[in-house]
Amino acid sequence: MEINNNYSTISSINQQIAVKKAELSSIDKKEDEKSLFENNDSVNIVGKNYDEEDYKRVLQKYKDLDSEVRTHEQTHSAGASTTAPINYSYQVGPDGKVYASGGSVRFDTSIPDNEVNAEVKLDKLASAASGPAQLSFSDSQISRAANLNKLLLQGIEQGVDYGNN
């Protein structure tokens, strides 16, 4: 009888140990989740080491630049045929949000065989490239090239020989 009693006591002890291990495991899991949350999802600022007005001013600069860049590139895109969607480059602002800091548009610069269509397309291309108020170097280069190609087409229409001797 004593042996059976020992087995039941050992079994009971093992069962209690298993219950305690499960409880500890649950507590450990909760502690891990809590520490992950604290490390990843909260901002711990020790002391206020920035000026609130400076923060607002810098944040406004990010917002203004984002608006300027998007308007600039959309003005280009709306004026002529493009070969790809607008491509933006981004920066993360002090508030953790993403703001456009630059961009580009890939114009369709192919010239149609029909001279009238080619002239219309080159006019649109020159207009779209020089459409925004502040032109970049690339903008002015595209506009200049479109205008030059238009002049070359007009010269060909008028019978000018550009060196085809």
Rank of each mutant, 00 (worst) to 15 (best):
I111D: 06
A84M: 00
E53C: 03
S25V: 11
D32V: 13
P85N: 06
D108K: 03
G102F: 03
R70E: 09
N114Q: 00
P94F: 06
V120F: 10
I27N: 11
Y62G: 13
G102I: 09
D108P: 12
K21W: 03
N44Y: 09
S101C: 07
S110H: 14
A80Q: 07
Q74G: 05
S42L: 03
F107H: 09
K20Y: 07
Y50S: 13
S42W: 02
D28F: 14
D113R: 04
K124A: 08
V98R: 11
Y62D: 13
D66H: 02
Q60D: 14
G102L: 04
T82W: 05
V58F: 12
A22T: 14
T82P: 05
F107I: 07
S101D: 09
V46P: 03
D64L: 11
E23Y: 00
F37Q: 02
S77L: 09
N44R: 02
K61L: 14
A126Y: 01
L59P: 00
D51E: 12
S35W: 05
R106S: 05
S127K: 06
D108L: 05
K61G: 07
A129M: 05
Y99W: 04
K48H: 02
S67Y: 13
A118D: 01
S101W: 08
N39T: 14
V120Q: 07
S25C: 11
I86A: 09
G47D: 03
N114K: 11
E31K: 13
Y88E: 03
N49K: 15
A133T: 04
S130Q: 04
E53A: 14
D66A: 04
Y62R: 09
R106A: 05
V116K: 06
Y99S: 08
E33K: 08
A84D: 05
F37A: 06
I45S: 11
D54K: 11
Y88T: 03
S26T: 02
Y55P: 14
R70F: 02
L24Y: 03
D28C: 12
S25I: 10
I27W: 10
D123E: 04
V69K: 08
E68R: 09
A129Y: 05
V43G: 03
E38D: 14
A129P: 08
H76F: 05
I111S: 00
E68H: 13
K20L: 10
L59Q: 15
